[in-house]
């Protein structure tokens, strides 16, 4: 469920230009699918609101580039 919801948030962050299904099936980093840094900023805001967490951009942020990475990060942070 977590991954599916995160995939929806990724899709919304790029105005639906990439579907949640495409996000879930992605075999390359999301940035290569066209998730720009602007979309990532929206995604960060959406994840922070939805899961009441705070993402520290000072460290390694490569988890933003895959739904698996995001799911693992959210699970650990909650």
């Amino acid at each position: 469920m977590l991954k599916e919801r995160l995939a929806e948030l990724v899709s919304e962050s790029c105005d639906g230009q990439i579907t949640a299904a495409e996000v879930l099936e992605a075999s390359v980093p999301l940035s290569y699918l066209g998730v720009t840094s602007l979309a990532q900023m929206r995604l960060i805001d959406a994840v922070e609101r939805e899961y009441d967490v705070e993402i520290d951009l000072g460290g390694d942020v490569s988890f933003l580039d895959s739904v698996e990475g995001l799911a693992a990060w959210v699970s650990a942070a909650r």
Partner: peptide
């Protein structure tokens, strides 16, 4: 540059 851009945006 990528993480630095995210920090700048925030």
């Amino acid at each position: 540059a990528h993480p630095a851009v995210l920090r700048a945006y925030r």
